[in-house]
């Protein structure tokens, strides 16, 4: 069985800082990580490979430095890393990104065998859109399974797959045909540590590097800014509220007195509150 996992290298958002004057992102010196949601997808892919045999190919699109994320994924246990990098891809929105990735998955299929499953994380932590997974599924006519909590069964002979999917207000048990695209929910598995052999292999492995042309993309007008229907017109910092919080005096008053003060202020701005609270309290 052949599984492709799409990953993205993202800035470690906990350490992103905004320039106080220009309101631009200060990228310099911000460490990058594999999008944490993608690791659950990678682990699920490795688990299926270990169970059913086969190979896991990890695919990422990004600048040349994104090879680091592929080496990390190989170090966790993936078999092959493919880096899709080209200046034509710069400025891609989710539609253009899904186009380029879908083309690369197609090329991966031609080169190493058509994948039975394509995995992505449920979303990235920098874009938070959750749109690229469904975009790839649609472009490759794969069955789309988003927010999957567990892969329960894969039947390679009859080409079916059964999963548990997080739905509105409950969990769906879905059965569909492979090839399928799965976006994996977080916290559904425990991401393994690679063996020392894997880590060494990851550091030394020869990665497959494709540009638009070698990935088989003949029409670059679908890529990058040109292939993106959405246009970012403005980036700005949120407006501060005109008035700051009214500070309740603390001084050396005891906590009980301050609390009474807070309640009095609250009842003053929300006159209906006390009656509502009493109704709730009476219902206990």
């Amino acid at each position: 069985m052949h599984i492709v996992v799409c990953i993205k290298q993202v800035p470690d958002s906990a350490q992103i800082r905004v320039h106080p004057v220009t309101n631009t992102i200060m990228r310099q010196g911000v460490p990058t990580i594999i999008n944490p949601y993608d690791l659950f997808a990678l682990e699920e892919a490795l688990r299926l490979r270990d169970w059913l045999g086969g190979e896991v190919t990890v695919l990422t699109m990004g600048p040349p430095m994104a090879e680091e994320s592929l080496r990390k994924a190989l170090g966790i246990g993936a078999d092959r890393g493919v880096l899709l990098t080209d200046r034509f891809f710069a400025g891609s929105d989710t539609l253009a990104t899904s186009y380029a990735l879908a083309q690369a998955v197609r090329k991966i299929g031609e080169t190493w065998g058509i994948p039975e499953i394509v995995f992505t994380g449920k979303q990235t932590i920098d874009g938070d859109t959750a749109q690229v997974g469904p975009g790839i599924a649609r472009r490759l006519a794969l069955q789309q399974l988003t927010y999957v909590a567990a892969v329960q069964e894969v039947d390679l002979e009859n080409k079916t797959i059964t999963v548990l999917r997080r739905a509105e207000g409950g969990v769906q048990e879905l059965k569909t045909a492979i090839p399928a695209l799965i976006t994996m929910l977080e916290g559904t598995n425990e991401v393994r540590r690679g063996t020392i052999a894997d880590v060494l292999r990851g550091a030394r492995a020869e990665l497959v590097v494709w540009n638009a042309q070698t990935a088989g993309i003949t029409d670059v007008s679908n890529c990058g800014l040109r292939g993106s229907p959405t246009v970012v017109k403005r980036v700005f910092a949120p407006k501060p509220r005109a008035t700051k919080a009214v500070q309740i005096e603390v001084g050396d008053r005891d906590m009980g007195t301050i609390a009474e003060d807070v309640i009095a202020r609250l009842y003053a701005v929300q006159p209906a509150l006390e009656a509502a609270l009493l109704r709730t309290a009476a219902a206990y």
Binding site: L95, A130, E168
Partner: peptide, 23 residues
Amino acid sequence: ATVLGRDLAGAVATTLLTGLTAD
């Protein structure tokens, strides 16, 4: 932008090849 809406919006926008802005 529920799990249903996000699942559907991404697929519809890609099929129509149009722009979609999340959240």
